[in-house]
Write a protein that binds this DNA or RNA. Structure first.
Lengths: 147, 147
DNA sequence: ATACAAACATATTAAATTGCTATGTTTTAT
DNA sequence: ATAAAACATAGCAATTTAATATGTTTGTAT
């Protein structure tokens, strides 16, 4: 019941790509890792998952890098986290072989509504939202100096 | 982003207690563990957490055991899982020291709505619901023989 | 009074997952 | 050709989770 470091890195890295979306040219993992203050080689593993989920386009070779596969409005936190987290939603139900009715009841009464709620909440947050909020926040950062 | 075995056991065990609620006398961990087909000693650890959260009353000694501290309508899956799972909701935000605005934006745009959605979904499911659904399900189990 | 059945407590072990590093190979612009 | 990048795989260290083992307390019934 926790978003992993990888998940956080994914959200952060994708927001960086969103900020760069109109620029036309890709960002490298090295650049992003430096901005975020995390390991480049670990970030690459995150991108490998994002690539597999077709959320980013990659260019190999010199001057290569990554960019968003779709505009920021069309990529949600759910897209990103379901590409990265193994188990974003439950599926267990094979537990309690001796009491299958109880197992199914837990599935139906607890897990299914929980999954739906998670999916809904995460699908509502787009990269465009994240980027806008980041800019609002960094604004209030700089404003602090002028109070 | 996953409900642990302990969490599942907690939900199942509490549903057993709910079924026994009107009986007046407590159920033992041994009895429950046998019905669920899980280890007694492990289940005891689950009950230690449920006890700490004051969701169950315990009676020591012979003829002792556990029973619900409140009626099944007044105990939710959220109560149970937040007593058992260490991290049911996020709190991280100290990540990304170098980009605090981004950290706060992720917190505000993704984590906070996610936590609220989880809390809401789990609070909507009571032990009474779970019990009713279990009975409905076991009904359809037995009905299978008569088709 | 004693024996037993239960909760309660703590330590240990084993397995799985997560976070991260290391060491490459392929590809492509210059 | 060379350098800069993505891409791939293996391995390691730390943490968390699942489970066992070994008790001790406490209350009930005989």
């Amino acid at each position: 019941m926790k978003i992993s470091a990888k998940g956080r890195y994914g959200l952060a890295a994708m927001t960086e790509l969103a900020e760069n979306y109109s620029a036309g040219r890709p960002l490298t993992t090295l650049r992003i890792s430096e901005r975020l203050g995390i390991s480049k080689i670990y970030l690459e593993q995150v991108f490998s998952l994002l690539k597999r989920a077709q959320l980013v386009l990659s260019m190999k070779g010199s001057q290569g890098g990554y960019q968003l596969a779709r505009p920021p409005e069309e990529i949600t936190a759910y897209d990103i986290l379901s590409a990265i987290e193994l188990t974003l939603t439950e599926t267990a139900s094979e537990a309690f072989e001796k009491l299958p009715a109880l197992g199914r009841a837990i599935e139906k009464t607890v897990y299914a509504p929980l999954d739906a709620a998670i999916r809904e909440a995460l699908s509502a947050a787009t990269l465009a939202d994240l980027l806008a909020e980041t800019e609002r926040e960094s604004h209030s950062d700089t404003m602090m100096f002028y109070i």
